[in-house]
Design a protein around this nucleic acid. Sequence first.
RNA 1: GCCGCCAUCGUCUAACGGUUUAGGACAAGUCCCUUUCAAGGACUAGAUUGCGGGUUCGAAUCCCACUGGCGGCACCA
Length: 472
Amino acid sequence: MSEVRTRFAPSPTGFLHVGSLRTALFAYAFAKSQGGKFILRVEDTDCQRCIPGAAEKIYEMLKIFGIDWDEGPLVGGSYAPYIQSERVRTGVYKKYAEQLLKGGHAYYCCCPPEELEQIEERHERKRIELRDPCRNVDIQEAQARIKKGEKLAIRLRVPENETVSYHDFVLKKEISWETNCIDEVMLLKTDGFPTYHLGVVVDDALMQISHVIRGRDWLPSTPVHLLLFKYLGFPLPQIGHLTDILDPGGGKLSKRKGAVSCEEFLADGYLPEAILNFIMLVGWAPKDNRELFTLEEFIINFQKGSLQIANPVFNRKKLDWFNGIYLRKKTDEELASLLKNYVPDGANVALVNQTVPLVKDRITKLSDYRLLAGFFFEEPKIDRALFSATAGVQLIKAAEVLGKIKKWEKVEIEEGLKKLIEKEKWETGDFFMNFRVAISGSKITPPITDSIVILGQKTTLSRLQQAAKMLE
RNA sequence: GCCGCCAUCGUCUAACGGUUUAGGACAAGUCCCUUUCAAGGACUAGAUUGCGGGUUCGAAUCCCACUGGCGGCACCA
């Protein structure tokens, strides 16, 4: 059996989408699970849509998630990805387009390039006629026009009344199309760049990709690729289409309803391993219902599980759950260091370290830290409506008791407070809630006595006094 | 409009055509723990497997039709 080779082929037109991360992950795991190779190829043949720096961002992201590629041009001792715009210069795409032309499987298109507004019109026309009028233009005539300096594009010539089909290894079924329904797509643009269709087929063939794994949204263009593989005389790779990830609100996962790029999730304080574990289970499932996998474990188990064929809905709550799990797996030191970008500016490092054990079980993502522990670093803004009617006296007396404490330690503090509550016959819950609000400005906090131990006697007293004053 | 894909609890899913009173996880609810919120533990509820027909001794599992969802139809990828 020949080597398994998969690839991830993003276009650098924006941030890495979680759906793309999944495609990359599955292609990577598929190859790795069989001792194969994984390749990264940047499909940047539409110069206008490319965003400077986007490609580098994608490399960086993949590496953060542990997805690294095994091949490519050597640059400074490591592999660079294959880049289509660079390959254009070698003339490969043009060469194969001309081969198709020669074989009668493509033709020059003399239509003037359309503006975006006209595309809609074309779309309407497609409903009636799939064939381009240029298919009948004499090739000699077209070549004469090119000699005169005109730039002509090249379209695929689709045969009539044939059937094309392939076996989808993810869907596990034969899928076929009547050629009469296949569009005569553009292959080579007037700027000399290939379109996606020519680009993928030529490169997948030349790079000897054994298994093409891509999103379901590519399924409709597969018949075109099938034709190209055939006419170019390339062996057909195995092709498999992954599910589309759906938005809870319906339709494909979209930005409107929240974050979709890996950058955003990371910035929000989701851990790479949590995102990765979550995304593994979106479109793939093991037989034994296991849920926790590291990347290595995923690779080992990949073949034993199965790729889903029904489109899943993106379940954010489940991502939160995974993140909580991985957050709690961190040591306090690790968590403190991860929290660096989420603590208030200029926050005291030692103070942050002390608060970590208190917040660890209470945050679902790193960005929650500030909301929960902000009062350690800045004076709280207190809404007096949060206090109960008994708050005034309680705070004053609590301050008196705490002011007398010699050793500022948890046991001493708790003892003093408990005695006070008993003596005054207060309700424990009522007292602590008022106390909590006075210290933090919030009804939701880490354990409050632990918190004031960290906060220190001076700050604690001043906050109590301030709150009491406010209630006068 | 045309072409294609899909269909099990709210969500993600498990279940060689028979061991299934359809299992697990997230979410929800109840209880325990508890000075709040979490975390943790225990438990509950939730799916006549979209609908209708077949095939079969037997169907969530196979076939057909319907309905619904999704995707694609650019000199974009």
